[in-house]
C-alpha cells in the first residue's frame, strides 16, 4: 500500500505547526470572553480542530489505509457512546 512509504513534504509540517500555534493563541484569547453555556463548545471545537490537524498530518492518518482511519474513528465513536448515554440519563432526570 502507498501508506507505508508516503513522505509528507516538510512544507506541510510547518504549515500545520503554524496553524496549531495560531489556534492555541486564539483559544487563549477567546477564553477571556464569557459565552455562558457556549464556553465549553467553543473551547472544545478549537481543541477538536487542533487534534484533527495533528492526527491527519503529523500522524499521517490522511495518508493511511481505510482500516487505520476506521480504528481511529472507532475510539472516538465509542467515547461518544459513553458520553451520549450517560448524559441521556443525567439530562432527563428529575434530580441530579
Amino acid at each position: 500500500m502507498s501508506s507505508a512509504h508516503h513522505v509528507v513534504p516538510l512544507r506541510i509540517y510547518f504549515t500545520i505547526f503554524f496553524l496549531l500555534i495560531v489556534l492555541t493563541g486564539f483559544t487563549v484569547f477567546i477564553s477571556k470572553f464569557d459565552f455562558g453555556v457556549m464556553n465549553l463548545p467553543v473551547a472544545l471545537s478549537i481543541a477538536i480542530v487542533k487534534a484533527t490537524l495533528i492526527m491527519l498530518f503529523f500522524m499521517h492518518v490522511k495518508y493511511s489505509s481505510r482500516l487505520t482511519q476506521l480504528f481511529v474513528l472507532s475510539g472516538f465513536f465509542f467515547m461518544g457512546i459513553l458520553f451520549f448515554f450517560t448524559f441521556c440519563d443525567y439530562l432527563t432526570r428529575a434530580w441530579n
Binding site: F85, C88, D89, Y90, L91, T92, R93, A94, W95
Partner: peptide, 13 residues
Amino acid sequence: GHHMYVSGMSPYA
C-alpha cells in the same frame, strides 16, 4: 443501563 433501572437513573434513559 439495564443494570441500573432502580438506581435512581432517569426512567427515560
